[in-house]
Computed example of a mutant assay.
Amino acid sequence: MLLEIRDLWVHYGKVEAVKGVSMALEEGGVITLIGANGAGKSSILKAISGLENPSRGEVRFNGQVITGRPAHEIVGLGIVNVPEGRKLFKLMTVKENLRIGAYLDRDRARIAKGIEEVFERFPILREKQNQPAGKLSGGQQQMVAIGRALMARPKVLLMDEPSLGLSPVMIDEIAKLIRELRASGLSIVLVEQNASLALQLSDHGYVLETGAIAVQGRSVDLLTDPQVARAYLGA
């Protein structure tokens, strides 16, 4: 198993944000975490990324325990986050934001190649490479955020609400991109409030309620599960 989470607990003071969550991601697979605001989805991603220290449990990557390691080391191992809200440096140019994604890399030729690969994937960013990232549309900013993560050449991509605030056309583009990334062999952990989209894009789903897993299973089965349909799919 590429990525494993075992009995993970995350506290903010006395508040239990994540309560004994266990999940697993196979190489080349996509899993999704769905649930209401405050269900613990982003806290799980932060714990995987090294941005929050879990109070109990462990995260394993390629069989190695990475719990408690600093975020930059986890990026170096190949786990990279596309954060909710994009978190770009808005006064810096598109190209400068992309370079930041490769901050652990000292190979200038590889960095230049990575930027060119991002521009090939997102041609509009080539046109806007010298513009401040904050001047781009929401969809274009999401492209920069994903491109920045790809610059680190990840093995696992953590995507936190990639469709949030985007137009239906742009959401379709993001869905297409996730399918392409998965087809290229990248493994993905997808957090989405758009539960139907998330389950269509993933192999396995975990439904979170108040920090704990309420339901889990194959995504294709969860799409037709009456409990999930009533609570998250608008049925």
Rank of each mutant, 00 (worst) to 15 (best):
L2Y: 04
L3K: 03
L8E: 00
L8M: 00
V10P: 03
Y12S: 04
G13H: 13
K14I: 06
V18Y: 04
V21Y: 02
S22D: 06
A24W: 02
A24Q: 15
E27M: 06
G28V: 01
L33M: 05
I34E: 06
G35P: 06
G35H: 07
G35R: 10
A36Y: 01
N37Y: 14
A39I: 14
K41G: 01
S42Q: 01
S43D: 04
S49V: 03
G50R: 03
G50K: 02
E52M: 12
N53P: 00
E58M: 11
E58Q: 15
F61Q: 02
F61W: 11
I66D: 11
T67A: 07
G78P: 01
G78I: 04
I79E: 07
V82N: 12
V82Y: 08
V82Q: 05
K87T: 10
L91T: 14
T93K: 15
K95Q: 14
E96V: 00
N97V: 06
G101I: 04
G101W: 05
D105L: 13
R106W: 07
R106D: 14
R108S: 13
R108D: 12
R110G: 04
I111A: 01
I111Q: 08
A112W: 00
I115S: 05
E116K: 11
L125E: 10
P132D: 05
A133M: 08
G134T: 09
Q140F: 00
V144G: 08
A145H: 05
R148Q: 12
A149E: 13
P154R: 02
M159I: 04
P162Y: 06
P162L: 07
L164V: 08
G165L: 04
S167T: 06
V169Q: 13
M170A: 12
I171L: 14
A175R: 08
A175D: 09
L177H: 05
I178K: 09
R179P: 05
S184M: 05
S187Y: 09
S187E: 02
V189R: 06
L190A: 04
L190C: 11
V191E: 05
Q193V: 11
Q193E: 15
Q193S: 15
Q193K: 14
N194Q: 14
S196D: 15
L199N: 10
L199A: 15
G205N: 12
G205D: 12
Y206D: 05
T210K: 10
I213Q: 01
A214M: 02
V215M: 10
G217K: 08
S219N: 15
S219L: 15
V220Y: 12
D221A: 12
D221K: 12
T224R: 13
D225K: 03
R230I: 06
A231S: 03
Y232D: 10
Y232G: 03
G234Q: 12
